[in-house]
Write a protein that binds this DNA or RNA. Structure first.
Lengths: 109, 109
DNA sequence: GCCAATCTTGGCATTATGGCCATATGGCAA
DNA sequence: TTGCCATATGGCCATAATGCCAAGATTGGC
């Protein structure tokens, strides 16, 4: 098998993860969880959406394994399960900052 | 400003990038471009969808800055603009492999 | 100019996603 | 049990994403 010849299901699995990251509220949640686990109520305040909406966002993140949860009494605490995101976004944003410069220069005076 | 208190538009910008990555065909394209730039025709063969569909996928990737293009005669060659993806997916997949073990163990005999 | 090859864009139908409301579920305490 | 709090789920609707076909662009060769 050639190096790039991977099964479609391989990319589908990756796409599910990228898709789970593809919403501002979910990225905000992932970022907040870097500070440590938080209950749904806190995350709901943070995001500023309906509690049921946040719950569904959390279900999406949990389903792909980006977060895990733990029940403590009536509350459920979510925590990150992956530490790859910070470095990834740093890398992406440093490159895209360059792109903006390039594009701006390309417009010319 | 607290560490986690970032503007919504900050997360929207990230979400656009993650969304662009959130499709198997686009991930397949990004992976293939690691080998070097390729024309739309090659990528179309690779993905196995209509050529116009692949063109739209490429437009999505280009719009968020993940790829860049170059015209050479009638053909247009795309190349990656970011080198963050390989390491990211390695990290993600090594963690999720662990998760699967955990989940499997949790099901029990 | 004209044609063929390559790629992009518009249009349209189908499907998926996001959000709220209303309603369930689970846990704790009286 | 009853009541209450914290979360999850189902239903519904508006919106966005996907994919193909058909129709425009752009380039190179004749």
């Amino acid at each position: 098998m050639a190096i790039t010849e991977k099964d479609v299901s391989f990319y589908e699995a990756r796409a599910r993860i990228a898709k789970a990251m593809g919403h501002p509220s979910r990225l905000m949640i992932l970022d907040a969880l870097q500070q440590g686990e938080q209950c749904v109520c806190e995350l709901t305040r943070l995001v500023g959406a309906d509690q049921s909406t946040v719950s569904k966002h959390l279900a999406v993140l949990k389903q792909v394994g980006l977060v895990a949860d733990r029940r403590a009494g009536a509350m459920i605490y979510y925590r990150p399960r992956v530490t790859c995101l910070g470095g990834f976004w740093n890398c992406i944003e440093s490159v895209l900052k360059e792109n903006i410069k390039v594009q701006t220069a390309a417009l010319g005076p």
